[in-house]
Design a protein around this nucleic acid. Structure first.
Lengths: 249, 249
DNA sequence: TTTAGATTATAACGTAACGTGAGAGTCAAT
DNA sequence: ATTGACTCTCACGTTACGTTATAATCTAAA
């Protein structure tokens, strides 16, 4: 059932170069390769490709797609439902554009009047109109949202989580005078990443990196984190940064 | 009623840079500029911009859009109708994609089976799915089509056209030992361009250039043209090439 | 009337997602 | 054994802007 590049390309209607490109950038690496170096795509690879193409159709940049689908908490079913939503959205916009064309045709014949604003209804050239919808699900969730989620948990769960958190913070505080790139530090940061994804289930690598920066930029974070040790926030940001970049390769 | 860049940008939802870019490449040059160099867009400019955005939405490359709308025979009304067609087409494809998502969701739940081909129904990543439809209208019409059009005309019209044609060919033959870039040659080629657009009403600059190349590549042309003077085909190709490039700037 | 803030200009380098060869190795069929 | 269709890896080209950087212009408030 393993397929070679051109077979896949022909099946889905993209170019061989595109598959090469996706492989290069680590977005879609074939499960197997022959000993002569030929790429062999599995059924699973095909399913992933389908997901990628849905995201692409909706205008997501490849990098972001990679982040989303490589996130440990990524859920295919959930993604498909959202794709559905967004495609319906897109159709609504398309309908609007069709209305705009119709109106413009009439306007052109002098049958109706039209404001300039109306002439551009339906167009949407923000780089990605669905970004916001997607953000809510996969990206950039901010402090408030995470805290809100925290509040939804039972008291019992909360203390359990706080304990886990404290363990990781303490471990990181011990290491904070060493290098943030060291194996121990990276292992601890890995634990931190897993912890976040397990409990909030929404952290892509990109968001994780931003989060690290926030630890330094946002006083509320810095203060709380540095309770475990002076300079921990900065150390964590650096370690998280390194971690995210490592994983990205 | 003249608007400055940011006003236009905000109105239609694109960036200022985009307008700059369109100006740079000659796709949309503002009707006026203040003495300090500020761009001032007229109502007409806005309408053109709307057309441009329709083409863009449908995936046309900017260069081609430029060719299409700068063609002397370009007809706004006709373009709008075609836009409508293509947007409806696009919606059909979108509906198909929505079906595909729905099916995939069910498939994922194990409720139905699905072939790989079905999983990619509705996607269309050919650089421009509407190219063909548009070609028929504005681009790349080939010899046969032009000749077919010729046959649709009355006998009277045909002889009239042949006469015009002969005048231009004869003039060009006189000039063919000089430079194809000379003022006289370019004036004659201009006449040729106008002649074609008046009688066949479908020659963009790009097509015009290709047509010139065809005069040399296709024996049927070369022979007929060179009846007016040895080497005329090559001379015309060069002159047409220069003409198209001049106009493009 | 100066002065800050918003907007404009040009210039020029950066980026994303491939396209397009070039040169060389693989593979199945004649 | 040879062709023709694929495959691989560079590596540079392209499109449609994004993104500074630097300098002028304009507008309203102090």
């Amino acid at each position: 059932m393993a397929m070679k590049v051109k077979e896949v390309a022909d099946l889905v209607g993209i170019s061989v170069r595109t598959l090469h490109h996706y492989d290069e950038m680590g977005l879609l690496t074939p499960d197997e390769t022959t000993e002569s170096g030929y790429r062999l795509y599995s059924q699973d690879n095909l399913d992933t490709l389908q997901q990628i193409l849905f995201f692409k159709e909706l205008g997501f940049p490849l990098k972001q797609i990679k982040d989303i689908i490589s996130n440990p908490s990524f859920n295919r079913q959930e993604a498909l439902e959202l794709h559905r939503q967004m495609l319906l959205d897109k159709r609504r916009r398309l309908d609007q554009m069709i209305d705009t064309v119709d109106a413009t045709i009439q306007h052109h014949k002098g049958e109706i009047t039209m404001t300039n604003k109306e002439k551009f209804a339906g167009f949407d050239f923000s780089q990605n109109p669905y970004e916001e919808e997607a953000r809510e699900r996969w990206g950039n969730q901010k402090v408030e949202q995470s805290q809100a989620k925290l509040k939804n948990k039972s008291q019992e769960e909360q203390t359990k989580m706080m304990n886990e958190m404290n363990v990781i913070y303490t471990r990181l505080a011990e290491l904070r005078h060493g290098s943030p790139a060291s194996e121990e530090a990276q292992a601890a940061i890995q634990a931190w990443y897993d912890y976040l994804n397990n409990n909030f289930s929404n952290y892509s690598l990109e968001v994780f990196k931003n989060l690290g920066q926030m630890y330094v930029d946002d006083e509320r974070f810095t203060k709380n984190i540095d309770k475990f040790g002076e300079g921990l926030a900065v150390f964590m940001r650096d370690a998280m940064n390194i971690f995210a970049n490592q994983q990205n390769k």
